[in-house]
Nucleic acid binder design. Structure first.
Lengths: 191, 191
DNA sequence: CTCGAAAATCTAGCGGTGCTAGGATCGGGG
DNA sequence: CCCCGATCCTAGCACCGCTAGATTTTCGAG
């Protein structure tokens, strides 16, 4: 009597529905519009059901952030080299601003910059490192270089989207940034 | 009978009190703790009084942001050269996180990146440009270079404070960033 | 097929938010 | 002195995140 199996599946489906709906509302109207009432109504359940899946709104944001990190990691790995990486990163941020906010702007209750960070987060950072370690330059730890590179991209992404930087020249800004930061390590240009 | 003068003065005093109190609460407990009720109680007036000074919470944030921009501009001008500038910027962000948030993280209803931006905002950006125009490098518009430099600093500031970057090596990150970005324009090293 | 227990879900409500309408109170000018 | 306009407060609206407790649904045993 695998009735239990069916229930678990239905529950997992509903959890996915919650996250997809939260994400949809957030992308369309911002995270402030993702209220527990609205979210519950959209999935056609009452509010308390949300709390049987997540501890609260914060944890929903965190779950969306983890999904986003996994997707971002895949896209970053598809890029080849610092220039493509930077464009892929900013592309992601511009295309999915709500997910980007969940990851880096809002409090999703996730641990960052720590060995016990959730795997998708560490993996996304690893994807950055992989594309950058050849560009760190002599004597510069790839991790440190990646942090700086990442921070700069993050700054461009957030300031641009918040209207703090004129969007027209974002392409030139990325080009300038990457050109200056990247400093190929001499060893084995090709092997 | 300049009784009207006195009233205006009292009103201006109260407005300053509101902003100082909002700032104080925000620095101590974050902007979420700056509720209209709490703020009203602290200044020993009822909530509606706040709305006779500001349209709403957003406008209070905006007013704090303008104060902050003026202060930041002064501190940035006191710096000499890109390295000192970067440290002064990050210092400000770390010392006054709530004000920094009001300026760059929250919605204070201010116009950015526009000719009709409030003067303190444009002035703060000008202070950045003044310290950076000699480091833009050949053929690179100082404004563009400043935007990139600023965005990178902003990324470092926000990611560090949000726990996304380990705080230990922030010094090394700044050094690396500045060293790479800065590329002195050849003309007139000294004149 | 029925029935009772357990699981699942909902109703209703708590204390909080930003904001505002409308009444009370105060003080200066006629 | 008394009135009237400016000033301020009380009370309340609609919404928020979250939860206790009642209610419905579902399953499996008899």
């Amino acid at each position: 009597m695998p009735v239990q199996g069916r229930k678990e599946r239905e529950r997992a489906d509903r959890e996915r529905l919650i996250l997809a709906t939260a994400r949809e509302i957030a992308e369309q109207q911002g995270w402030d519009a993702v209220t527990t009432r609205r979210l519950a109504e959209r999935i056609e359940y009452s509010q308390p059901v949300l709390y049987s899946h997540f501890r609260g709104k914060r944890e929903i944001i965190g779950a969306v952030a983890l999904q986003g990190a996994a997707e971002m990691a895949a896209e970053l790995r598809a890029a080849d080299g610092p220039h493509a990486l930077a464009r892929a990163y900013l592309d992601f941020a511009a295309r999915s601003p709500a997910v980007y906010d969940a990851m880096f702007q809002l409090d999703g209750g996730l641990a960052f910059a720590s060995p016990d960070s959730p795997e998708p987060l560490r993996d996304a950072f690893t994807a950055l490192v992989e594309n950058l370690e050849a560009s760190a330059g002599e004597g510069v730890p790839p991790g440190l270089f990646t942090e700086v590179f990442w921070a700069a991209l993050h700054g461009l992404a957030t300031l641009t989207r918040a209207g703090r930087l004129p969007p027209e020249e974002s392409g030139r800004r990325v080009d300038l940034l990457v050109e200056r930061l990247v400093q190929p390590t001499l060893a084995r240009k090709s092997v």
